[in-house]
Design a protein around this nucleic acid. Structure first.
Lengths: 231, 231
DNA sequence: CTTTTACTTTAGACGCATCTAATCCGTGGT
DNA sequence: ACCACGGATTAGATGCGTCTAAAGTAAAAG
């Protein structure tokens, strides 16, 4: 049996691996989880003993296949819950993350099944993050770029936004920058401030670099026309 | 902040107080929670330090008003969850208890509100147990008797059944003995085996004393008819 | 009134997750 | 090559919740 805490570490390592690629450093995990580095070292040792991570001392850590499977299971719970809360309990985009974090370790397989069924086996959560399938094969995230890496004139579709900061989500929701929305980059100012035109003829919206960095985008569906519609 | 475990103890003490009246013994709590008596002594000491229980050494323990409020909050979560799972996620009567036990400590006040709203502010859970109101005033449970204390010829309405044993619930569900059902006691055999006629002209069903002891009944709605019940 | 018995509490230990303080790599700068 | 500095690990302590074994108490039985 794995503790909630271990699951949190595995989820954190998975997320950091997605963002930066392996290996993941002790201090990055510590910062992500709000723990001190010695605490992380100690926990990572236990995860290694259980075969959930591979580790090279003083270097970093990487999930084993088994560890990744656990992380995907937790992430599936998390994202199904986010979707369910949004869809059936009238939660807004920005409220679901903390609730899902609290519940994800405590739902049964049965609950997971029923929630997935009630939602019609969804493939993405409200933030655009892919929901791992029931068989826990790693979702494919290729073909996405980070908004802050794009260039003026790019026509894009918002694929995902980070679910970690409710204030940011509130802001993006106001701005109309939600998964599936078409945007055009109209300006990139100093310090990475990105200005985009939202929707087909919509308003312009400037996003600080710290926000643009957390937004993932993909090319529009029909690459040969001017502006296209989202998925 | 109270730990999950402390909440479990308070809930257990509350339940035992309802069943047996205060004070509640160390060993009863231990048995109810599946812990050893020394563990309970130790935990009860901590609850006392926090002002959640009153205790007299070697005698027993009783909830303070504050402790009772916490217990009612947890119970409200538990029973709302049971109702929600049954109503909206297609759970059966016998499956909901464990799931609710796992989730009751981890839902937010917001979640509680939305679930209650989705259900239309229900007053009882699927087992007939009263759901404490949002202001956490103690529910009134007077007017109920235990089926095993009733007599042959009594006409009764099933008010509540215990939610703790899924197998028993399965059995009662089969037997048609569910909250709201009218029954008539037709026989009481040695060792407390109670036989009842279920529904108006329905079949007869024998219930072992261990089961009859967990069923709470009330008199039928019109008290001026044939037979009425004991205290 | 004494003894037995059942139950409760104290004593002492353990594993988990965490921290602070101290020590230990490894690498980039000179 | 050397060394300094940033990041990682070890050392050691703490609080929680749990256990077993030993000691204590209260109430029933004699």
């Amino acid at each position: 049996m794995l503790s909630d805490v271990m699951e949190d570490y595995l989820k954190a390592i998975y997320t950091l691996q997605m963002e930066q690629g392996p290996p993941v450093s002790t201090s990055d995990i510590a910062e992500y989880l709000g723990k001190t580095p010695p605490t992380v070292t100690s926990m990572v040792g236990k995860l290694e003993d259980r075969g959930l991570v591979d580790r090279e001392k003083y270097k970093g850590v990487e999930l084993t296949t088994e560890g990744e499977t656990v992380a995907l299971e937790v992430l599936r719970h998390h994202r199904l819950l986010e979707a369910y809360l949004t869809e059936h309990l009238d939660y807004s985009w920005s409220e679901v993350h903390d609730e899902a974090d609290a519940l994800e370790h405590h739902i049964s397989e049965e609950f997971e099944k029923r929630v997935a069924a009630a939602l019609g086996e969804p493939e993405v959560d409200p933030h655009g993050d892919p929901i791992p399938s029931a068989d826990l094969t790693p979702p494919d995230s290729s073909g996405l770029s980070v908004l802050s890496d794009c260039e003026v004139g790019d026509h894009l579709v918002v694929a995902r936004v980070s679910d970690r900061d409710p204030a940011e989500l509130e802001y993006l929701s106001e701005a109309g920058v939600t998964p599936g929305t078409t945007i055009e980059v109209t300006d990139i100012a100093p310090f990475g401030m990105v200005t985009v035109r939202v929707g087909d003829g919509g308003r312009e919206q400037s996003l600080p670099e710290s926000v643009a960095r957390t937004i993932r985008v993909r090319p529009p569906d029909e690459p040969d026309s001017e502006e296209v519609s989202p998925a």
